[in-house]
């Protein structure tokens, strides 16, 4: 495993419902990022299709692995990079059961997928209408270290990031499609999740306007001490690259030892209280 890696935050806008166009944009960004030395290139939630696709999701969803993941696997192989992107995943066993998924592909092909656990269905969001929630953390052992995947609203629930970290992730990748009215929450929570888990956190948000929703961008790579290492522009497409040195985790983990001090015996009480809410 490499100790130092270069991570690209590919903050793109998507063409709603146009997978071919979005794949083209992903390819362009991967090539550009690779030229700048990036080894892991991260795209936003639903970067394959755009976020606001509503009923069209039934036509757009694909199995994973499937056609689009194969295209992006080839890209990863060709460029020797790891790529994270988001897409609607059609369950292999059914015809209209869909997950909001994050996919990780690498130089050796398909690595893994994560299905979003917390599906926002309030305000302008209607994810539970379309998607089945996932129930497993997504942590994958790669040449670039153990990478954990989470998606957008998951970040409001510390247990998702915590579980990801406890399963060994030292880099938590959060792909997102967050509209501008929620910026402050995400700016706070991304730093909090990095600090409380003593892990690196890469947050990559969508930009552009879809059905009146303006996605704010502001993608960032955060160190385990909460410091923002690199940050993309607000509201505009951007490609920024930051470096992770996994050795930086050690002093932070010793300084604020949240993992050492974790109290599993509280979890039963937490569960009981949550069930009685």
């Amino acid at each position: 495993m490499k100790e130092r890696i270069k991570v690209a935050l590919a903050q793109i806008s998507c063409k709603q419902g146009d997978k071919a166009e979005n794949i083209r944009k992903i390819e362009d960004n991967v090539i550009k990022a690779k030229q700048q030395g990036a080894e892991l290139i991260i795209f936003p939630e639903f970067s394959l299709t755009g976020y606001t696709v509503r009923d069209c999701v039934y036509e757009l969803a694909e199995t994973i692995p499937g056609h689009s993941t194969t295209v992006l696997e080839k890209l990863a192989k060709k460029t020797g990079t790891y790529i994270v992107f988001g897409m609607p995943e059609l369950s292999e066993k059914t015809q209209a059961t869909i997950y909001n998924a994050a996919v990780l592909v690498g130089p050796d092909g398909f690595v893994g997928k994560y299905r979003k656990m917390y599906l926002p269905t309030h305000s302008v969001f209607e994810e539970k209408r379309y998607f089945r929630p996932g129930c497993k953390a997504g942590v994958f052992d790669t040449k670039l270290g153990k990478i954990g995947l989470i998606i957008c609203y998951d970040i409001f629930f510390p247990e998702v990031s915590r579980l990801t970290r406890l399963k060994g992730a030292q880099l938590i990748v959060c792909i997102s499609a967050s509209p501008a009215t929620r910026r402050t929450f995400f700016e706070t929570l991304t730093a909090a999740r990095a600090i409380e888990n003593t892990a690196f956190l890469a947050y990559v948000n969508l930009v552009g306007i879809e059905d009146g929703l303006q996605f704010w961008g502001g993608s960032r790579l955060i160190a385990p001490n909460g410091k923002v290492l690199v940050k993309a522009k607000y509201d505009e497409e951007d490609l920024v690259i930051g470096e992770i040195n996994y050795a930086d985790i050690r002093p932070i983990e010793a300084f604020v030892p949240t993992l050492k001090d974790l109290r599993p015996e509280l979890f039963d009480e937490l569960r009981e209280a949550a069930e009685r809410l």
Binding site: G17, E21, T52, R54, E210, D211
Partner: peptide, 8 residues
């Protein structure tokens, strides 16, 4: 009948 407004 729920479609995006700005599908291309």
């Amino acid at each position: 009948f729920r479609l995006p407004r700005t599908l291309h």
